[in-house]
Write a protein that binds this DNA or RNA. Structure first.
Length: 489
RNA sequence: GGCGGUAUCGUCUAGGGGACUAGGACACGGCCCUCUCAAGGCUGGAACACGGGUUCGAAUCCCGUUACCGCUACCA
């Protein structure tokens, strides 16, 4: 006997970019499927043509691919004609079997009644008046071409299911109104389209955000009415902004693409997202994708909404960056270097890979994002022109004449230094500091700014070593000129 | 308003009746290391929402209250 096939799906509506909440949901589905040898599908819920755009669909693909959350089979477009036809025939079938009925109430009328109920401070629930229409009355209205929606008749009883993250959840049917499944233009409403598609796609586990909990009883009713077996349901907690409110544009970056552009690594993003609503237990935090795949379990799924803290995301990114080595490191950061114009293309990275890996290894621990890594390493690129940062100059060269004198002296020592090694460079510079009666700290900082233009970076002696004698001297000469003449106009 | 969900440091979380004087991480402060910035090490402050039960014993189980979130559309 073989276990039933596991088929899960991520079903976003293409009405914006791929936001972090959606990405987290996609990640959990992907993790679940990949771990259990199941299938991970992508369905674009574009039945709301007015709000859906191709651009958004594109953004969803891009975001998922960037995160490495590749889907199986072909993408399902919910609003495509073939699926639309099935939604309609499912509605038709419910109508024919007396499980749904035509409602001739107009949107305006419904609105009016809702307002009245509101004024009386009572809960509005559709009163089923159209379900009491005489058969001949209905036929006459249909014959007259009167527009109607199709409503599902909610039976009496209680709906409950065993949610993977919440355990048992139940809803009394009396609190659910006869909901619309087909609009008057014959297009399907969300709940019908979802159930119809999930049945057709043979989805075994419906895993989504817990904002769908109250849709679930309606959908279960539809599964029963359509004679299909129920999938298992899992509802993941929401992701909120630092103010505890649902994450929105007000909170700054909410699209995964924003983080990609800020120099966040996809593996760090996945790691951080996974921890919003899941925990491997114990103190484990930093994990690679393969590790998460191994550790992921429905037992560790959490119920509480999580607040998205970008500070921790950055910290985590730094952890991932520091742990990467060799080719993995190069592959992870190369796109950022191409974007920064340091490499013409990914191919040109290949040509100098050993050198590049060396530079990266020297700097990676000091960077939290790939953008910072670019800033730390750019001066080692051939042809890099140093620009003296005004703030750094002001702070580390308080007296220009003194600075120039010390820097010139350092230049002289370095010019004749043999051999060109970290230790020798350090000794030479420290000796100079002692001879001149200045602290190593201020002297090293003076030299740092002279050689790199900045006040922060990796070890000064190692920077000088890596730059080589020619470039180091060149940079120092540039700094001396700057000191003599002031910044170039 | 109705219905549903949730509740441990500011934040992410560990914990699932006794091992809790509640652990780790981010953030914040101090110290160490140190040529800067990171990283790393040490360290400080910081939480079981409240009230009732059940029990010899509750952060853990039950009930209520409160707060927050979600749904309550011919949106998804």
């Amino acid at each position: 006997m073989t276990a039933p096939e596991i088929r899960v799906r991520f079903a976003p509506s293409p009405t914006g970019y791929l936001h972090v909440g959606g990405a987290r949901t996609a990640l959990f589905n992907w993790l679940y499927a990949r771990q259990l040898g199941g299938v991970f599908l992508l369905r674009i819920e574009d039945t709301d043509k007015a709000r859906s755009t191709d651009e958004s669909t594109r953004a969803i693909f891009d975001g998922l691919n960037w995160l490495g959350l590749h889907w199986d089979e072909t993408v399902v477009y919910q609003g495509s004609p073939e699926h639309l036809a099935r939604h309609q025939s499912d509605a038709r079938s419910l109508l024919d079997r007396g499980l749904a009925y035509r409602c001739f109430c107009t949107a305006a009328e419904l609105d009016e009644r809702r307002k009245e109920a509101d004024a009386r401070k009572t809960a509005f629930k559709y009163d089923r008046r159209c379900d009491r229409l005489a058969p001949e009355d209905i036929s006459r209205r249909v014959a007259d071409g009167m527009p109607f929606t199709v409503r599902f008749r909610v039976p009496e009883g209680t709906i409950s299911w065993d949610d993977i993250v919440h355990d048992t959840i139940s809803f009394p049917d009396k609190d659910i109104e006869d909901f619309v499944i087909l609009r008057s233009d014959a297009t399907p409403i969300y709940n019908l389209a979802v159930v119809s598609d999930d049945i057709a796609m043979r989805i075994s586990h419906v895993m989504r955000g817990d904002d769908h909990i109250s849709n679930t009883p309606k959908q279960i009713l539809l599964y029963h009415a359509l004679g299909a077996a129920l999938p298992r349901f899992a509802h993941f907690p929401m992701i909120h902004g630092m103010d505890g409110k649902k994450l929105s544009k007000r909170h700054g970056a909410t699209a995964v693409a924003d983080y990609e552009h800020q120099g966040i690594l996809p593996q760090a993003m996945n790691n951080f997202l996974a921890l919003m609503g899941w925990s491997p237990g114990g103190d484990r935090e930093v994990m690679t994708m393969p590790e998460m795949l191994e550790l992921f379990s429905e037992k560790g799924l959490l119920r509480k909404a999580a607040v998205f803290d970008t500070k921790k995301l950055e910290w985590m990114n730094g952890q991932h960056l520091s742990r990467l080595t060799g080719d993995d490191l190069v592959n992870a950061v190369a796109p950022a270097f191409v974007r920064a114009g340091l490499f013409a293309s990914l191919d040109s990275v290949e040509e100098v890979k050993p050198w590049f890996v060396g530079v990266l290894d020297d700097c990676k621990e000091r960077a939290r994002t790939t953008d910072q890594l670019v800033g730390l390493t750019e001066l080692f690129f051939p042809g890099h022109v140093v620009t003296i940062d005004a703030e750094s100059a002001k702070k580390n060269w308080p007296d220009r004449a003194v600075a120039a004198d010390l820097i010139r002296a350092s230049r002289d020592r370095l010019a004749t230094l043999e051999p060109w090694e970290d230790k020798a460079i350090e000794t030479a510079l420290k000796t100079l500091a002692t001879e001149r009666g200045v602290g190593t700290s201020p002297l090293f900082q003076m030299i740092r700014v002279a050689v790199t233009g900045k006040s922060v970076g990796i070890s000064v002696t190692h920077t000088i070593f890596r730059l080589g004698k020619v470039v180091t001297l060149q940079n120092i000469d540039g700094a001396l000129q700057w000191l003599a003449q002031g910044p170039p106009a």
